[in-house]
Amino acid sequence: MEKKEYQKLTEKYSPKENKLKNAIIAFLIGGLVGIIGQALVDLYMNVGQISQSEATSLMMVTLIFLSCLFTALGFFDNWVSKAGAGLFIPISGFAHATTSSALEYKREGLVMGIGSNIFKLSGSVILYGVIAAYVFGIIRFVFFGG
């Protein structure tokens, strides 16, 4: 087979057409998480008579609770692999990554297993979040006076 022909063939069968589908799914699921978040904030504000910032915190705790629970129950891995960025970009992804690392290393013990590995996947988010916030914080503080 000619090299060009082969290239054409592999291009045809590479999962190119799935990219559009993945993008649409990520958009819809991610947007749905946003709607659920907003609905929870409104629900907590109306039912609990609490301030918006308290309701927002409670909404975050709720989403994290559900993500951790669903991950531990086993079916959330499947959801995340199907929804892609739609579920790993929202806070659910952070909770999912943390819980799945903890579960994966559970059999190696409480300290050397769960303790050492719980942030194996999600640790980089905290690390680079803090580094970025520190660097930008200094820039903002020095050049703009806080």
């Binding site: 990520a26 958009f27 991610g30 947007g31 998480v33 946003g34 892609g84 960025a85 970009i89």
Partner: peptide, 22 residues
């Protein structure tokens, strides 16, 4: 606000997915 929430979270996830796939 629901439409805005949907669009913002959706677009951020869409950008993430495009980076992941490409």
């Amino acid at each position: 606000i629901y439409l805005y929430s949907f669009l913002f979270a959706g677009i951020v996830c869409l950008i993430g997915q495009l980076i992941l796939d490409n």
